[in-house]
Structure formats: C-alpha cells, structure tokens
Computed example of a mutant assay.
Amino acid sequence: MLRRALLRGALLILAVAVVFVIWDRYGPRESAPDMAPAVEQVDHILIEKSARRMSATADGKVVFEAEIALGFKPGGDKQMEGDGKTPEGHFKINRRNPQSAFHLSLGLDYPHPEDIARAKAQGIDPGGDIFIHGQPNGLSVLTLPGDWTAGCIAVSNAEMETLWRLAPIGTPVEIRP
C-alpha cells in the first residue's frame, strides 16, 4: 500500500514537472523589453573569449558586463558548421529575434564574404546563425554552466533582457580570442 502511494506521488511530481517544462518552452511568452532611449544605447560590444566576458560601451564608458558561455569547442576561430567554435573578428548585430528558441537573441552578420569564400574553397559549410542569446526556453529558471552553445554567445536571461534593451541593430560586436 505504501509502495503504491509513493509511486502515485512520484508520478504526480513527474507529471507536474513535464507540464511545467512544456509550458515554459512552448507557452505564451512575455513581450520583449522595449528598446532603451537612444541616449542610453550602447555603441560597441566586446566579447573576450578567453576571459568568458562581454562588455558593452557607450561613448567609451562600460555600461554593461556579463560572464558568457561559448560554443562547446571555443578555442580558435569558427571554420565550419558544427565545429562548436565561436567566430572571432568584427561583426554587427543584424537582427533581433524575440521568438527565439533561447530567451531573446541578437543575430550577428556571420559569415562574412571572406568566410564563405574560404569555406567554399575547402568544400565545407562555414556555418551561420551566430547569436548572442539567453538560456534555452524551457530552462528559464537555470543558467547552464560551462560552454554549451553550438557557437553562439550565451548569457543569463536577466542579462539578455538588459542587452536587448541597449543594443540596436547595427551595433558593432568585436569577438577576440
């Protein structure tokens, strides 16, 4: 009798957890935060891969800092789709996705024409869809440890909401080794 009650209790807890994860991942999302006034927006984002740090500046003054997670094999520059590397170089934010599979996302203009030409010469796909984003939807109460993305730059959801407000399309992004 006790065993049956424990099994029912465990099944109930499991069912509630499954419903929570499904709701968190696929349920209605809050609207994205509004952009900050132009005078508060950043004009440069610096990502330092080896330090796992991002900083954003306005008129040369740091106004935002965050610890970051990178691709699952972050050493070196991105060469091809699936290599787990985060690209290095100078990019710009070229799109904003409030309906991302991750909590908000800011797209980078990778690959550049030279990346495409290099990859084509080697007969490989340079990859793409590199974003700065929050945590995976469905895990909104967690911040995943370590480097876990496919090549993107990840921050906590709260940090992503701040960056979302501060970084308009066209913001330069420098990614250093």
Score class of each variant (00 low, 15 high):
residue 3 R to V: 11
residue 8 R to K: 10
residue 11 L to F: 04
residue 12 L to P: 01
residue 12 L to K: 04
residue 13 I to G: 14
residue 15 A to E: 11
residue 22 I to W: 13
residue 22 I to K: 08
residue 24 D to I: 01
residue 27 G to S: 04
residue 29 R to V: 07
residue 29 R to L: 13
residue 34 D to C: 03
residue 35 M to G: 08
residue 37 P to M: 09
residue 37 P to C: 10
residue 37 P to D: 09
residue 42 V to C: 11
residue 45 I to Q: 10
residue 48 E to G: 03
residue 49 K to E: 00
residue 50 S to L: 08
residue 51 A to Y: 07
residue 52 R to T: 11
residue 54 M to N: 07
residue 55 S to Y: 07
residue 56 A to K: 10
residue 56 A to G: 14
residue 60 G to A: 07
residue 62 V to G: 03
residue 65 E to K: 14
residue 66 A to M: 12
residue 67 E to R: 15
residue 68 I to S: 10
residue 68 I to H: 08
residue 69 A to L: 08
residue 69 A to H: 06
residue 70 L to F: 12
residue 70 L to S: 10
residue 71 G to C: 06
residue 72 F to L: 04
residue 76 G to H: 04
residue 79 Q to I: 13
residue 81 E to T: 07
residue 82 G to M: 09
residue 85 K to F: 13
residue 85 K to H: 12
residue 85 K to G: 06
residue 89 G to N: 07
residue 90 H to G: 02
residue 91 F to P: 00
residue 95 R to Q: 02
residue 96 R to G: 03
residue 97 N to P: 05
residue 98 P to R: 03
residue 99 Q to E: 12
residue 99 Q to N: 14
residue 101 A to Y: 01
residue 105 S to N: 03
residue 105 S to E: 11
residue 107 G to L: 00
residue 108 L to N: 03
residue 110 Y to S: 02
residue 112 H to E: 11
residue 113 P to Q: 13
residue 114 E to R: 13
residue 114 E to K: 11
residue 120 K to D: 15
residue 122 Q to S: 12
residue 123 G to A: 11
residue 126 P to S: 09
residue 128 G to N: 06
residue 129 D to Y: 10
residue 129 D to A: 12
residue 131 F to D: 09
residue 134 G to N: 10
residue 138 G to Y: 03
residue 140 S to C: 00
residue 141 V to P: 05
residue 148 W to F: 08
residue 150 A to W: 04
residue 155 V to M: 15
residue 155 V to D: 01
residue 156 S to F: 05
residue 159 E to N: 14
residue 159 E to M: 07
residue 160 M to K: 07
residue 160 M to N: 05
residue 161 E to I: 03
residue 162 T to D: 12
residue 162 T to L: 06
residue 163 L to P: 05
residue 166 L to V: 09
residue 168 P to V: 01
residue 175 I to K: 02
residue 177 P to C: 00
